Amino acid sequence: MSIVIVGGNECMESQYKQICKSYGCRAKIFTKMPSNFKRQLGFPDLIILFTNTVSHKMVGSALQEAGRRNTRVARCHSSSSCALKELLAAHLPSGCAGPEC
């Protein structure tokens, strides 16, 4: 499963990747908006928006592209590692429910 994380803290990028990897997911993380953001999103299975640490413009772009690609979107105000684990557990297929997968 591929995931795009929009927002979050720069210092936690490596932790976000490790958490996603432990759940069997590949992750792209965008803590700041690059110039070609829409093209870099790709075709993920899930877009996670950490709404507390992201600009309105970046949220709008991510939601617009998610709508075009019929991609699920999960929003969370907190950008903590626990919040990411809860989102992954809630949105992963029923066959995989945790890091032991």
Rank of each mutant, 00 (worst) to 15 (best):
A27H: 12
N52G: 12
M58N: 05
E100W: 00
M33K: 03
I48R: 02
V4H: 01
G24T: 10
L87E: 06
R68Q: 02
C101W: 03
Q40P: 04
S55R: 06
E100M: 08
V54L: 10
F37P: 04
R39G: 04
S55V: 09
A97R: 00
Q40A: 08
A90I: 09
E86C: 01
S81T: 14
S55H: 04
K32P: 08
F50W: 00
C101S: 08
L41P: 00
K28E: 14
V59R: 08
E86L: 10
S79N: 07
P93L: 15
I5Y: 01
A89L: 10
C25G: 07
L84S: 03
V4T: 06
K38C: 08
F37W: 03
A90P: 03
M1T: 15
S78Q: 08
S78Y: 09
H77W: 10
G67F: 07
C25W: 05
C96N: 06
K38D: 08
R39V: 06
L41N: 00
E10N: 11
K32N: 13
K21Y: 11
Q15Y: 12
V54C: 10
I29S: 03
E13G: 05
N52A: 11
C101R: 02
M1H: 11
G8T: 02
K28W: 09
V73F: 06
